[in-house]
Amino acid sequence: MTTEKNSLTKILGRVGFYLIILAILVFTLFPFYWAINSSFKGEQELFQPASYLPQSFTTINYQSVLSNGNFMRALFNSAWVSGTTVLLSLVVGAFAAYALGRLQFRGRTAMMYVVLAMTMFPQISILSGLFTIITDVGLYGSPLSLILAYPIFTLPFTVWVLTSFFKGLPDEIEQAALVDGATSFQTFYLIMLPLTAPALVTTGLLAFISAWNEYLYALTFTLTTPASQTVPVAIAQFNGTVMRQEPIAEVMAAAMFVTLPLLVLVVVFQKRIVAGLTAGAVKG
């Protein structure tokens, strides 16, 4: 009798557990499902009471996004702005991280604190100063202004995460290189840097996502020049074809183009991303 009861509670507990999992999944994924759903709906259907499945299945939204020159240019802008920023941050950041993670010198701890404080830097607080400087040097309205501004958040983050990675490498490798007569710089780029390749990929990916998603600077510096806008600004300002009021279905289709590549990357690199994020946020 009792064993039967126990197995019953066990089964109920198991069912309850999977119900909770299901609830979490619905909570996380439903809005994303809704974006997909809406992107396949006709414009009229979006103004009728919402239906859980699209009734007028159409790909017209995707076609009009593909033929929207502004949006395509924004994708291109985002790609090259984020790509350049990340490349720059990785090169410069790996240098600094090696110094902070592997070399003993006076001022090291102070530099570490500066870098850590910089990862928390409120971007809004230099908006007006940066705006003045960018206008002064004539970069206002150019994607170059974003490449100038983005290292403020990608660089300290890159340095911090890579430093914790460099610290974790065993000392023996370096000593062996030194004994073999390698110079400091050779030790760094021939031996230590290749070992950090996985960390470089993760950090680069995270920095890329944050640059790709950045909105404040992009909005401020490219508001009046649609040709230089990146994807977040283009999506926030999306106007579709003239006759319609608010082409939200097209926005959702555009969102799919922007989000799907990111999602593929995130799912593929899931483990590394979590490790990178926790190194950036939690571990010292």
Binding site: F32, L46, V251, A255, L262
Partner: peptide, 25 residues
């Protein structure tokens, strides 16, 4: 493992896009 990957979905979607998505919702 799949669950952990799924949990990164909302985080990876640009805030501007998720804002417009919730605007619709």
């Amino acid at each position: 493992g799949l669950m952990r990957a799924v949990m990164l979905v909302p985080w990876a979607i640009p805030t501007v896009i998720s804002a417009r998505l919730w605007e619709l919702m």
